[in-house]
């Protein structure tokens, strides 16, 4: 009855959740309104909970989070992208939450090692996705400034979205079907938000994405330095 958990897949999904959780946590004290500060922190907490379960199946959660070097992380490059302005954070969340929602829904339907977590987390992520979609509509179909910024963000992050559908060892889901559903959903939201669906490449030359292979973008090292420095400076410390 025990299923062998693929450490590769657990690290990939766990690192996605951990890194995005940390990025969202950076908004604490900086969000445009109090309600959004609370919302982003709540989404970060959900992701952190998921990361803890996933990383614990791959090894010691603290060692994995705090003592790995940049090249050992397997998260998507999308989730490590800096917060930018609020529109940028929302575009990142729209792309990722749509993906994660489809992924967990797929995994929940399997009898694989991630089914239990996925069945639980898919309900949490439904709220993240809804939150991102509603903000995309509000910013895209709002003021001229909001529209411009939302368009800029959607376009800038587009090249990071192809990586989500590359195969990962131990991840038994229909990635091609997920990609079709993702494109359909994101396009529909952008249309409704009066935004233009970006036309740039999502895979191949001029696209980005080798996070799953441990290749990360420039800002990720700085993020890790901040995330890890306390644990590294005071090994074994507890509250």
């Amino acid at each position: 009855m025990t299923t062998t958990v693929s450490a590769t897949a657990a690290l990939a999904l766990g690192d996605d959740a951990l890194v995005l959780s940390h990025r969202l946590g950076e908004w604490a004290g900086h969000a445009p309104v109090l309600e959004e500060e609370v919302a982003l922190a709540n989404i970060a907490l959900d992701l952190l909970g998921q990361a803890r379960v996933l990383l614990s199946t791959a090894g010691d959660e603290d060692e994995l989070a705090y003592l790995r070097e940049e090249r050992a992380f397997r998260n998507l490059q999308l989730v490590e992208q800096p917060n930018g302005d609020f529109a940028h954070t929302i575009a990142r969340q729209l792309y990722f939450s749509t993906y994660q929602h489809l992924l967990y829904a797929g995994l929940a339907a399997t009898d694989g090692p991630f089914a239990d977590l996925a069945a639980k987390a898919v309900k949490e992520v439904a709220y993240h996705r809804d939150h991102a979609e509603q903000w995309t509509l509000r910013l895209g179909d709002g003021t001229e400034t909001g529209h411009e910024r939302m368009q800029r963000a959607c376009t800038a992050l587009w090249r990071f979205t192809g990586e989500m559908f590359q195969p990962v060892d131990g991840l038994d889901v229909d990635l091609a079907g997920m990609e079709t559903a993702w494109l359909e959903s994101v396009r529909a939201v952008l249309h409704r938000a009066t935004l233009t669906v970006p036309e740039g490449p999502r895979t191949g030359a001029w696209s980005a994405g080798a996070g799953r292979q441990g290749v990360h973008t420039e800002s990720f090292g700085r993020m890790l330095a901040e995330m890890q420095h306390l644990h590294r400076s005071h090994p074994g410390a507890s509250w």
Partner: peptide
Amino acid sequence: LLSRFSSTACKAL
């Protein structure tokens, strides 16, 4: 609805 997330993740404001 004011916000989908409130004082804790399980509540909306």
